[in-house]
């Protein structure tokens, strides 16, 4: 069964079949949401962007990654437990945003409008980080019932949620603030009480394997956490942890 899983994951992300070819290249495995920011900070590493869960699985399967940048600490922690990763460092944070199509056909003004019912909502699935964070946020806003009073469509990828809302199939939905920023021309944002935000933290760690480029990995980590790195992350909508 293990082999089947491995094959499936590899098939799902054909890019990995090509990436290990240049074994010597310094390789960063990073969550998709970091793509723009990371490439702006430094274009030199060989990047492999994808879902954090898939990336973690690939590293477990022996992928030749040097650095792992995860959208949630749990995936890095899983690797730490298996001695596959050094101590994770929090380098960015994110928040959730309620978004509507710019035309806002249902005239939504605040998150509490979701309680009215009769809306089409697009959110993350119950088993992916975006969906888990969204349910936690709705719970803190005392709006958990909104998932029952409306027609709710669930997606495994944040990009599917943004596309569904931007194309007008859904009236509203929750995405990461960074996703909204990247699609500002098609999506309007409705503020959500900051106190209700669940903690969304991005961590990076150096992969533990023979042949890992430790010098390049720590230099990469320094670039991400430098003043310039933090500015680029902030410009892309990320929040920042306190300076160490």
């Amino acid at each position: 069964m293990k082999n089947v899983r491995r094959l499936l994951i590899l098939a799902a992300c054909g890019c990995t079949l090509i990436a290990p070819a240049s074994a010597a290249a310094f390789t960063v495995y990073a969550a998709s949401s970091l793509k723009r920011a990371f490439q702006q900070i430094t274009p030199s590493p060989s990047y492999s962007f994808g879902g954090s869960d898939v990336l973690a699985f690939q590293i477990e399967s022996g992928a030749a990654a040097d650095v792992f940048a995860s959208a949630a600490p749990i995936y890095a922690d899983k690797l730490v437990q298996k001695h596959l990763c050094g101590t994770p460092v929090v380098f960015a944070t994110n928040t959730l945003t309620l978004v509507v199509p710019t035309a806002n056909p249902k005239q939504l003004r605040s998150a509490t409008d979701l309680a009215k019912g009769g809306l089409r909502l697009a959110i993350g699935g119950p088993n992916v980080p975006l969906g888990i964070y969204t349910r936690s946020l709705l719970g803190r806003l005392h709006l958990a019932a909104a998932l029952r009073g409306n027609t709710v469509s669930t997606y495994t990828k944040a990009s599917d949620v943004t596309a569904t809302i931007a194309l007008g199939s859904a009236d509203a939905g929750f995405v990461y603030t960074t996703d909204w920023l990247a699609n500002r021309s098609k999506l309007s944002r409705i503020d959500v009480a900051a106190a209700a935000q669940p903690p969304i933290r991005y961590v990076l760690c150096t992969v533990t394997r023979s042949g890992v480029d430790v010098a390049a990995a720590s230099s990469f980590a320094r670039q991400i956490t430098s003043g310039r790195g933090r500015k680029i992350l902030r410009d892309n909508g990320f929040g920042l942890p306190p300076k160490p």
């Binding site: 089409r120 697009a122 027609t151 469509s153 669930t154 997606y155 599917d160 569904t164 194309l167 199939s169």
Partner: peptide
């Protein structure tokens, strides 16, 4: 997925 959505049972 994008047009009809992924709404359980519907």
């Amino acid at each position: 997925l994008l047009f009809a959505g992924s709404v359980e049972r519907i």
